[in-house]
Amino acid sequence: MQKGIYHVPVLMQEVINGLQIDPSGIYVDCTFGGGGHASAILKHLNSSGRLIAFDQDADAVKNLPDDDRVIFIPHNFRHLQRFLRLHKISKVNGVLADLGVSSHQFNVGERGFSTRFNGALDMRMNQSEKLDAAYVIQNYSEERLHKIFEQYGEVTNAKTLAKLIVQLRKTQSLKTINEFKNALYPVVKGNPEKYFAQVFQALRIEVNDEFGALKEMLLQAPDVLVPGGRIAVITFHSLEDRLVKNFFKNGNFDEIQENDLYGTLSKNELKVITKKPITPSQEELKNNPRSRSSKLRIAEKIKVSNNISK
């Protein structure tokens, strides 16, 4: 397995501590990537333990360890329950999701994730999918672009940006990163680096339906966890973190628990373990600056006497 090349895993020890690993348990790594977190989990499993590794990026397969305890699933983690059932697994002891983009994806210019390189405006995590960032820029309506940049990137002048894109795409090519960035400079607000990062984040979330996938996975997690099993999620921006925080706390994605007409609280099968998110230590920040925005939240499946664990 490649080490320290593909991706540097964040909050490694905090994840391992938080999952409270049962040596003979079954664990799911929703975002295998470079296999850093997976490798650490495997070290804590005995010969009976198993690791189910999801990753929709075909490049991740190269990092698989030669270990018969690992089942690799080359699909989006939104299909969590479906593929567990396919492998005749009904319950697992823990679920980990390290969200966002791997260092490898950022560092390969032609993938289109990074503002630092020129390349096609791609941004597909699964390169077999048809929708890419260039299509979004070229074909989405002004209203839809405005909504994406405002909601997914929190871009301050999202409306102005959307209007400019729709005007410019009639007369010039916006298919590469440099073409796109150069066209946008007249409306850049504040620090250009931060501005473009927000714009690219919005496009990436749209292309990969990141929020839709995250919500689907979270909704399935309580069903697949054994009572006492844990889910750990690492987020990299406030929008993701809010979804995870609300779901762990309330069992839904709203800021408050839903009450029906009779005042009955919505069902929540999870107990929050991390009242506040765990963030990187000063040492980790020094060694891996990309960890600076990461937040780890952990929840546990509530133990109920009439629940059947496996």
Rank of each mutant, 00 (worst) to 15 (best):
D260H: 12
L45E: 01
N93D: 15
V233Q: 08
R124N: 00
V8N: 07
E206C: 08
L219Q: 11
L261Q: 11
G153C: 13
H237E: 10
L99D: 02
L184R: 03
F117K: 07
K276Q: 14
M123L: 00
G229M: 09
V101S: 00
P192C: 12
E129C: 04
E110I: 11
I89H: 01
K189W: 01
G100S: 11
L131I: 13
A213F: 00
N259H: 14
L225P: 03
E179H: 11
K159Y: 13
I89W: 09
A134S: 05
T274P: 08
L285E: 11
C30F: 07
E284V: 07
A97S: 11
R297L: 07
P192N: 08
A299S: 03
F247Q: 02
A162G: 12
R292I: 08
N182G: 05
S47F: 11
F211R: 04
F54A: 13
A183K: 03
S266H: 15
E283V: 15
D68S: 15
L19M: 14
N191A: 07
T176K: 15
E154L: 05
V10K: 01
R116S: 12
S291L: 08
N46V: 12
A58E: 14
A120K: 11
S266Q: 14
Q13H: 03
H37I: 02
S266Y: 06
